[in-house]
Nucleic acid binder design. Structure first.
Length: 446
RNA sequence: CGGAGCGUAGCGCAGCCUGGUAGCGCGUCGGUUUUGGGUACCGAAGGUCGCGAGUUCGAAUCUCGCCGCUCCGACCA
């Protein structure tokens, strides 16, 4: 993509309303534009990141056996009356009325819809287990939206739902999702720790929130340092191997890790050695919980067992804040100059900077690099603007592409271009061919 | 919802107290400069001063109402 033809409205000055780094940087880098309180338009650059995150979430969900669907944003109030949540949900739910005076709502979540869908088609134990999910916009009329996309009223969420015959098999579904979340966040280049959450109506230990550690997080977190150091790495995961799943579950959830909602100072001190105690802040990016038969009973979603008797299915619900992740990623990856995207979600793989736009030789060299990178399947943002070098570098640093190739007449004389890494700030002079090869290898590894 | 503010050009702000019909910086556009880290020069465009009413000869400025937005608290992916 040529920058001169793109739509990248970067701001030199920081908009006054932005309080935290991710919000500031998203506005400055031309990723989002506020439409109204807590509601944002996604500009081209932001949209690309959102889509890449979404794609990774999709891949990891399906790898874990979850099946993608898409349910509408607008729902009928009837189902919610049936589950009893129409009144219970409160003013956070945006209620609307259609031309026939029917009560509708903009979905804050989809338990009712998915359960209705399941009950309509599923009849026997042979129809379970099932894991269905979608990635869809939600609306929750937050009292006070803030921090840009971190707490918007409209937000993009992956919400998945499991249907199982009993608690034992529902637990397996829960493990699958927990592992898939660990994989997802790891691929995103994020350190997200599952923390014991309020257990809700069922009790037990099957409720976890995933928190990204960041100073600007809204939750206080208390954890054993060793959990934050765990990693799946390139472990071979078999989602049909229940023992392996349970092992990973135990590995990540046995140690102390709680938010200030569930924190117990005495337990923290008795379970965690002083040197391992971490007290920090975190951003909630995921939430998984088992809720038993809460919705299946209310909505009559039952399946017949092998003996022919019908029983309500056991459900769980699994959320990932996709749009919030964009903010969380920036909170975790930025410096005073701008964003630093991990390779896995960067809006463009490589930035290409032409230091002497209009100089035939330099332009040609840039075009060649652009063609070659594109041929290798890499996305490139080519800064072909008629701008001073400083302005180009500043833009590149602000929008934070992980790699940058700089081409200028001085280097060309020596037959080299500059390849710079945004994260380390290091750069090297090498031939255009070598630079392209190197980038190609880096991205092939993802 | 309780508390505190703000709304003037795309962005950041001044002007308001003490009414006289709008200004600064950045950005944008045109031209010069041909640039190796936002840094040069010349010129230009761009504003219903959030909306409505009132007071006044006259309102960005004073009064009232409304709307929008932000910040601090209780809730959430």
């Amino acid at each position: 993509m040529r920058l001169s033809r793109y739509f990248l409205p970067v701001l030199k000055e920081t908009p006054a309303e932005a309080q935290i780094a991710s919000h500031r940087l998203m506005l400055r880098a031309g990723m989002i534009r506020q439409a109204s309180a807590g509601i944002y338009s996604w500009l081209p650059l932001g949209y690309r990141v959102l889509k890449r995150i979404e794609e990774i979430v999709h891949q990891e969900q399906q790898r874990a056996g979850a099946i993608p669907v898409l349910m509408p944003t607008i729902q009928s109030a009837d189902l919610w009356r049936e589950s009893g949540r129409y009144d219970a949900y409160g003013p956070e739910m945006l209620r609307i009325r259609d031309r026939h005076d029917r009560d509708m709502l903009y979905g804050p979540t989809n338990e009712e819809q998915i359960t209705e869908m399941f009950r309509a088609y599923a009849g026997s134990y042979r129809d379970v287990p099932k894991l269905l999910y979608h990635i869809q916009w939600k609306f929750r009329d937050e009292i006070r939206p803030r921090f840009g996309v971190m707490r918007g009223r409209e937000f993009l969420m992956k919400d998945g739902y499991s249907f199982d015959l009993d608690r034992a098999t529902a637990t397996i579904s829960y493990y699958k999702m927990l592992v898939s979340y660990l994989r997802t966040f790891e691929r995103l280049g994020l350190k997200a720790v599952p923390m014991q959450a309020e257990s809700g109506p069922i009790g037990g230990d099957l409720a976890h929130e995933f928190l990204v550690l960041a100073e600007t997080g809204e939750s206080g977190v208390f954890l054993d340092r060793r959990i934050a150091e765990l990693t799946l790495g390139d472990r071979d995961i078999d989602y049909d191997n229940h023992e392996q799943l349970e092992g990973i579950f135990r590995e990540w959830t046995s140690g102390y890790a709680r938010t200030d909602d569930t924190h117990d100072e005495a337990v923290f001190h008795s379970e965690v050695a002083e040197g391992d105690r971490v007290m920090a802040r975190g951003i909630e990016v995921g939430h998984i919980f088992y809720f038993g038969t809460k919705y299946s009973e209310a909505l009559g979603a039952t399946v017949a067992g092998p003996d022919g008797s019908r029983a309500p299915v056991h459900g769980g619900s699994y959320g990932i804040g996709v749009s919030r992740l964009v903010g969380a990623l920036i909170e975790a990856n930025h410096d005073d100059k701008g964003i630093i995207w991990p390779e896995s979600v960067t809006p463009f793989d490589v930035g290409l900077v032409n230091l002497k736009q209009g100089d035939a030789e330099t332009d040609k060299a840039c075009e060649d690099v652009l063609d070659e990178l594109s041929f290798r399947g890499l996305s490139v943002l080519y800064d072909d603007r008629d701008e001073r070098a400083g302005a180009k570098f500043a833009t590149a640093e602000l929008i934070g592409l992980p790699w940058r190739i700089t081409v200028g007449p001085r280097g060309l004389k020596a037959g080299t271009v500059e390849l710079a890494c945004r994260r380390t700030g290091e750069s090297e002079e090498l031939s255009a061919e070598a630079a392209v090869n190197k980038l190609s290898e880096i991205y092939a590894g993802l």
